[in-house]
Simulated scan of single mutants.
Amino acid sequence: MKRLLITGYSGFVGNHLAELLQGNYHVNLLGRKPSNLGNFFNHNLDSTSTYADALENVDVVVHCAARVHVMDDKATDPLNEFRAINTHGTLNLAKQAVQAGVKRFIFLSSIKVNGEGTTNQNPYTALDTPRPEDPYGISKAEAEQQLLTLGKETGMEIVIIRPPLVYGEGVKSNFGSLMRFVGKGFPLPFRAIKCNKRSLVSVYNLADLIKVCIECPKAANQILLVSDDNDLSTAEMVSLMAKVQSRKNLALPVPVWFFKLAGKLINKNDIIDRLTGSLQLDITHTKNSLDWKPPFSVEHGFTLAAKNFKKLTNGF
């Protein structure tokens, strides 16, 4: 039975992954919060910590831990803060993984390495030149390049996975807020935003792909984009959120030009672009390379994402 090390196991993706893999592998967990999902090792992710105990006899590292993207970052130097963990901390762990004899290092990156959107463009592919725009995306892109270089120099297999927005049971962020508002029956002004397309990935499809990457020889040294392979407009997303919560879709048909005008007036064009623009991933390379396709539907993921909000409705 293979031995794995999972970082970021207390986060949204890492927790679902650890639950999926429990019992099928010897699982070590690297972090600061004890868990019954594997053997716990209390370490920070940074450029100076040592991980020899957690890496002993490990075959595959699944690196989910990161300083995550936030909308209103208050750090004085955000890029330096992201680099400290996402770039320098990742490389420190990877170098020690080489020394420990780890065969494969799976890095959970981000589609932000490709860029911020595909409005009036073709969907992103794994072969695109990286064009990150924000500190989070830049730190992830730098980590990818350094990992690939380390892999070439040492022979450790590198697997890079770039997901878009990840959702499922327990999700928070903007997706969770939108699901909650729809569940409460608020008439949101999104019915007319139907010409954009957004790629999403449920945590169940993402965890399944990671599991495949642990075992599949063809995953070695690949850059893999992942999604549910069923892109939705904002209007379609709200409609499906209403459906899985047995609510009427009360979305109002406010025209897209109004959102764009409002974005200019309040200097929030980036937020409006995420709401009305497109961000699509072409996962053909992932499907063909690994003979894999997302096993779960978008409706399956939305249904499970809605579970917590139904429980919390009375307390909203």
Rank of each mutant, 00 (worst) to 15 (best):
L150K: 06
P253L: 00
C213Y: 09
P189H: 11
G185P: 14
M241Q: 08
S202L: 00
A143G: 09
R247Q: 15
I193Y: 12
F186D: 10
Y136S: 09
G185I: 04
I193W: 12
P163A: 00
R131I: 02
V201S: 05
D231E: 13
Y204K: 01
E157L: 00
A235D: 10
V182P: 10
F181Y: 15
E153S: 10
P217R: 07
T154Q: 04
K248R: 11
E157D: 15
A192R: 04
I193A: 02
K243G: 02
P189G: 10
Q222H: 05
P253F: 01
F175D: 06
K152W: 05
I160N: 10
E215I: 07
I214E: 13
F190G: 10
M241N: 06
L178V: 09
S199R: 06
K243A: 08
I158A: 04
P135L: 00
S239D: 13
L148F: 14
N196L: 01
P217A: 02
G185L: 01
K243D: 13
G170W: 03
P130F: 03
I160W: 08
Q146E: 15
C195D: 15
R198T: 04
L209P: 14
S139E: 14
M179W: 01
V166K: 04
K152S: 14
M156C: 08
R191Q: 14
V244S: 07
Y167L: 01
E169S: 06
E236R: 00
G137C: 04
K194P: 09
N196S: 06
K218T: 14
G137S: 08
K197N: 03
R247I: 03
R180K: 13
